[in-house]
Every structure is written in C-alpha cells, then in structure tokens.
Nucleic acid binder design. Structure first.
Length: 137
DNA sequence: GCCAACGTTGGC
DNA sequence: GCCAACGTTGGC
C-alpha cells in the first residue's frame, strides 16, 4: 500500500464536505496539473492519504482512502484529466500543521515542506508513520 | 495583500 | 525549441 497527500482549500472543499459524503466518497476532481494527475494514476484501491487544508489551517486534518482508481474527471472538458475517488476514514485526533512538519527533522524531505504548490503528493511510509505519531494515532 | 515559485502559453 | 510573459497557487 502506498501513501499520499491531498490538498484542498477548506472553504472550497474541506474535510467536513468529504465526511458528509460518507462511504460513497467523492471524486478528487479539478486537478489540472500533470504531476498531480500522474500521481493519481499510480494510486491503487485501498491506498491511504492525508487530507490537507491549504491556506486556512495549513494542517493535515484527516485520513482518506482511495475507493476508485483513476478515471476521467467528470467535470473536465478534456478526458486527459483524470482523478480518483476518495472517502473519509477518520479525522486526526490532533491535526498536524505545516509548521510542525517543517520543524520535525524526520519530515524535512516531505514534498509538502519542499514543494508547497503540488496539490497531490506522494508520502513515504516513514513520513506517514511520523505524521501518525504527531497526530496521536 | 504581497510575492516567490512554478507551470503554461505563445511569439519568434 | 527557446524563452519571455502571464496566470495560479499558497505561504507569509
């Protein structure tokens, strides 16, 4: 299983929105960046990801699971843009902020810390474990 | 609100 | 195919 990080602005589509979708989950649509799309193409059913709030909060707030592998983004005019479906698994007991990630030496190579603009990112297993530890899981 | 970083576009 | 101009993202 691999780990990922999904970034979203909470006032556009936040953790609570995804939780409200329940087991049905939601398409991670709207990605118009090749790097991010290519990561979604690599995702497999059951992969886990962090749900990160950009701009407001700047913290990982929950865990999601991939429930549908890459397919054309239903909201894109061009089918070259693909996305996966995700559902909320559980909130982090203690959200992990960008500041925390930056000040944690074990997370210094995390994409989130080094390339703030990429909206879908891979997370290594080692990084995942550190984040879980900081989150109180 | 500003601006640095990055990606994309389009003229040449 | 290069690169300047432009637009967007997201941290500060």
């Amino acid at each position: 299983m691999r780990y990922w990080l999904f970034k979203s602005e909470p006032d556009v589509f936040g953790w609570d929105h995804l939780v409200a979708k329940g087991d049905q989950g939601e398409e991670w649509d709207g990605v118009r960046n090749y790097q991010a799309r290519n990561f979604m193409r690599e995702m497999k059913l059951g992969d886990r990801g962090l749900f990160y709030h950009s701009n407001i909060g700047k913290e990982a707030v929950g865990i999601v699971e991939v429930i549908a592998e890459a397919h054309p983004d239903s909201k894109a005019a061009d089918p070259k843009w693909e996305c996966v479906d995700v559902k909320a698994i559980k909130p982090l007991p203690r959200p992990v902020s960008l500041d925390q990630a930056k000040s944690e030496p074990r997370l210094k190579d995390m994409v989130l810390v080094n390339n703030s603009r990429l909206s879908v990112q891979p997370v290594t297993e080692a990084e995942w474990k550190v984040v879980m530890e900081l989150a109180g899981l």
